[in-house]
Amino acid sequence: MSEDLGRWSDPSMLVLASLAGGPKHGYAITQDIAAQVGVQMGPGTLYGAITRLEERGLIEALPAEQRRRPYRITAAGAGELAHAARKMRAVAELGLTRLAGAGPVTA
């Protein structure tokens, strides 16, 4: 399913990862991602991801609190995040293992 998200897959994964820690509204998501991953996600990028994730049922909106609407990850979203995270971990482990085996890389 992550392929369906096209070029928005990375912001979408960041949003899913943030919401995996509990429901958050837009500003809280940007602050959480900045603090945890060091990525400053702009409002257009964030809501592009939120729009697509909501359409695909990977997150859902909760009742608004003073104009700020929190979102939470759904079961499908958690499954999608877990699947993507396992793939990313496999790629990371492969890369690190191969790099360790090849010795120091010279330009």
Binding site: T30, P43, R68, R69
Partner: peptide, 17 residues
């Protein structure tokens, strides 16, 4: 249509940022 759905919360986010 996008504004009807997300406008208010998006305005709040922009104001916060």
């Amino acid at each position: 249509r996008w504004r009807d759905r997300y406008g208010e919360e998006y305005a709040a986010l922009l104001a916060d940022l």
